[in-house]
Design a protein around this nucleic acid. Structure first.
Lengths: 115, 115
DNA sequence: CACACATATGAATATATGTTCATGTGTAAC
DNA sequence: GTTACACATGAACATATATTCATATGTGTG
């Protein structure tokens, strides 16, 4: 499968521009505020104001972050009346984030034996 | 499964400090040089100098990055003679990175719907 | 011991970036 | 039209950070 091939592949197989593209995704998830915004969208479409209040952030800041996330195609927007709802755009990202969340939530990190 | 529970959970279930912890992991993967270093370690233990040459980076820079990665427990080090070998410390991270690499390598995502 | 090699570390710097504030744009109702 | 609401946007700033350079630490060899 894809995962195994990625693990087995030669490191040089990843071109620089793809590494940069990958890093850009991780970088966007690397800010606490932005990450929490993304996690919010995991549960379904959310309006900007709702996120702002739920996360204790200013609507302006949330909007700024969503702009970056949308530009990177991590989220997509849909207007409904006066509000704009954002949801996860890329299923793969949803999986990665949810996987990481599960990892942090479940057990302590220093387990060496895996399933 | 853990993934499903993470997807289904209420967003507020993730405490702020855990969000910060998560973001810290993503942030470390969010730099191209650092990400390429991590990807190098996916294929097995690698010495600092070897990575530096393979990636076209200065040994000093690689060492600086490895210091951060090791502090965050993303990689672990083992001394063998004069060289120090680094490898992935957390299998979960290996999975996430490999998953993302596979995602970028496999198919091009459709870049159509601009908001 | 000295010497060469491999890596680590600290300082300095240029750049990137998250956040705030003020203002602009779009939408619905009156 | 105007008013109120929801969100976007640009500037400004303070902080963070990636990289380079010089220097230090550790390790094996003669």
């Amino acid at each position: 499968m894809a995962l195994a091939s990625a693990l087995a592949m030669k490191p040089g197989a990843l071109t620089d521009d793809k590494a940069i593209e990958l890093a850009e995704m991780f970088r966007l998830l690397g800010d606490p505020s932005r990450l929490r915004i993304v996690i919010e969208t995991l549960a379904g479409p959310r309006a900007v104001g709702h996120m702002a209040e739920a996360l204790g952030l200013s609507p302006s800041l949330v909007s700024h972050h969503l702009r970056l996330l949308r530009a990177a195609r991590l989220v997509s927007s849909e207007r409904r009346g006066k509000q704009i709802f954002y949801r996860i755009h890329d299923e793969h990202v949803a999986r990665v984030v949810a996987d990481m969340v599960a990892h942090v939530n479940e057990d302590s990190h220093d387990r060496e034996s895996e399933h």
